[in-house]
Amino acid sequence: MWERNLNGKDLQFHLSGINNENFIMKDEQTGSWWQQVSGRAIQGPLKGSQLKRFSHDDLTFATWKREHPSTRILEPDPSAQEEYAPADWEAETAELPVVTPRGKSEPLEDRDLVAGVSNQDAARAYLVADLARQGPVNDRLGTTPILVLPFEDGKSVRVFERTAGGQVLEFFAGTGEELGRLVDATTGSTWDFRGTALAGPLSGSQMARMDVLLDYWFDWRTYHPDTDVYRAGL
């Protein structure tokens, strides 16, 4: 999700090419080429410019509308609808070939689905399948304490800076009455999947969201060459 306004100018984008299975978009105004995954101009007059990223969620319709009852939803374009990917597109995409050269000792398969998180210190990939089994992960990215939070449907992931009220929090998945919620071991407060404390001493607090990219391993490591991979303690 990119802001189209750059230095006071609104840009209109077009699909314009492909770079190792990530598409290139061209802006009508200057003809510069932009990489979709990074929002960075790679060729043309604006080369080196960066579009402002807006955080988005990549989740099921059920979860999204539960959290945002007043959301609007893009309707299918009737003239193109037959061309849309089939319902099982995820399985089909997983079979497509990969063309980026593979390193000698890659920790994951090219089309392993990862949740990628990065900050100024580090970049890390979390295998989505592992997260779905393991539940919330209390981790540290560089010096930042983070919470990697898989959804109950196993398809989506959110990441927060796990600090609130001046303390670093340790989370675990709620059980019994707290099923489907999170509890922090530090204060005993109850939290939901939006990173909001619903009850307890920190009630009303909100953890800061971090961008997370659901991506294939080959694509994530192309744009984050220094990434490491989280090893699940399963």
Binding site: M1, S55, D57, T60, F61, T71, K155
Partner: peptide, 11 residues
């Protein structure tokens, strides 16, 4: 046109 389990990008 959407099923509950279909994925969306939300902002």
């Amino acid at each position: 046109f959407l099923k509950d389990e279909d994925r969306v990008l939300g902002v």
